[in-house]
Amino acid sequence: DGETSPTTSMAELDHLVQVISKSHLETCQYLREELQQMSWQNFLQDEVESYQSKPREVMWQLCAVKITEAIQYVVEFAKRIDGFMDLCQNDQIVLLKAGSLEVVFVRMCRVFDSQNNTVYFDGKFAGPEVFKALGCDDLITSVFDFAKSMCSLHLSEDELALFSAFILLSADRTWLQEKLQVEKLQQKTQLALQHLLQKNQREDGVLNKLRFKVSALRSLCSRHTEKLSAFRAVYPDIVRTHFPPLYKELFG
């Protein structure tokens, strides 16, 4: 808005930061304090082996359930973002269909232990070897590498919240009907993120590093879709009858 004075603009950005951070904290699934109480407990060797010896379809189903749970929190996050619910229903669905898993990957850095290369999963911290039965070692490695590199940015909860909103409001998703509306929301979110990074005295490079994450996220999600297609080709009935309906809606 060209007529907004810089002062009002700053206040508006501060307000946006506040609202989006609050939405993030209300819907983040795990509070950092809760995770600390779990004392970063890792799976024992026999527990790791038990996951590894599960049939491929059982492990896929378990992961689909966990992803779906995490996505439900992202949907709640989206609903609380200023302006999201004012978009047409088609665009709300398009943005969540394309962006919800990306936000799950972004949020993963909150439950990731960089030192041990483990992620909180099914009650304890799991290394990549826990997911061996899925038969997607390359994708799992990439997801862990992504979480590690997100962690290395040491984003605050506020910064993570704004970046998640920025990802969700991507105006270049296919099938958007009111692209301009989404563009405006995304630009505003980006300004708020820039404003926050400056306020937090982060070095200039952080925003550029985050821009690179956008393409990394898209690649992770398209590879997830490819792996699911390959799995479905072998186990169509398992997906049809045992996978969470929301997961099938989003990725089917």
């Binding site: 439900q72 609903k79 229903q89 669905i93 969540l96 929301l246 809606e249 989003l250």
Partner: peptide, 17 residues
């Protein structure tokens, strides 16, 4: 799209808790 995403649509319709 709404027809193909009934659960997501329902989640969006539910009031925020």
């Amino acid at each position: 799209l709404k027809e193909k995403h009934k659960i997501l649509h329902q989640l969006l319709q539910n009031s925020t808790s």
